[in-house]
Design a binder for these strands. Structure first.
Length: 267
DNA sequence: ATGCCTTTCCCAGAAAGA
């Protein structure tokens, strides 16, 4: 399919610090030309996002930042209105008084989109694990109306859950770990049950993965995970023309440990 | 991979990531 056939290109990318990744992000925006981009782990304060630099490429920015940790954003060059920060019913950690910057939603032209950075969970016996499950429950409630809407909608980002054993390089290596437990996968299934479908990218070079640890040459050894997901409602799913993982963005100097997931829509 | 990198806080090493 040629670029001319694509009316709207959307993407999600955990950049692991938007400031550390700024040169690569700018290059990637110019080379890839997405219309809407959901970012995770911006790791900058609310007012420290490099908005001027992305505005030069035609993007408006919605950012929910808290500084050193977390932080999510939506970039759009097809409009950015009705921006909503955070999540009603967010459990917070350790409680609602300390909520983290993990989701932002916006309307971009004909689409409603939500960027999410789901809590890691740390380990199944850690309080952060229950927080992760509760957070996913709150997300389910927050997206139910958009999922049922005739307007195309996608919630996309770093879900920190591998949906199946095929989404990790070695299931045996994850026994007893987070990201693969039945409770986490059930929470994703519950999320899909409100009317969302996992837009699984085309397998490229034999790999379905979107994340590879920085250490021990994990990327070159194919030791990855598919944890960056695009969950689409029926209206958006019906116009998907292609979905793919930009492995090139994981190569070279100073990459994020995540690759972007790109979805082309014939809206 | 039980942290073999990377980033942030800020200038030393802790915290966090998955």
């Amino acid at each position: 399919m040629s670029r001319d056939d694509v009316l709207v290109r959307i993407a999600t990318w955990n950049v692991n610090s938007v400031l550390a990744r700024q040169p690569r992000l700018i290059d990637w925006l110019g080379a890839t030309g997405p219309d809407v981009v959901c970012l995770q782990e911006t790791k900058v304060a609310a007012d420290a996002f490099p908005a001027v630099e992305v505005a030069a490429l035609g993007y408006a920015v919605g950012h929910h930042g808290e500084g050193r940790w977390n932080g999510v954003a939506i970039l759009s060059r097809i409009g950015l209105v009705d921006v909503v920060l955070g999540l009603p019913g967010d459990p917070g950690f350790p409680g609602p008084a300390t909520r983290e910057a993990r989701t932002i939603a916006a309307t971009c032209g004909p689409l409603r989109v939500r960027s999410v950075y789901v809590p890691n969970g740390r380990s199944p016996d850690d309080p952060h694990y229950e927080y992760k499950l509760a957070w996913l429950g709150a997300l389910r409630a927050a997206v139910a109306d958009d999922a049922a809407s005739p307007r195309p909608f996608a919630v996309m980002g770093d879900f920190n859950v591998a949906p199946t054993d095929d989404d990790v390089w070695d299931p045996a290596a994850f026994v007893g770990a987070t990201h693969v437990t039945s409770a986490e996968r059930s929470a994703l299934a519950d999320l899909r049950a409100v009317g969302l479908t996992d837009v699984v990218p085309t397998i490229s070079k034999g790999s379905p993965y979107t994340y590879w640890d920085y250490r021990a040459g994990s990327f070159h050894k194919g030791m990855g995970m598919r944890i960056d997901l695009v969950y689409a409602n029926a209206a958006l799913l019906s116009v998907v023309e292609a979905a793919w993982i930009d492995r090139e963005a994981r190569k070279g100097t100073g990459p994020s440990d995540h690759a972007p997931v790109v979805v082309d829509l014939g809206v």
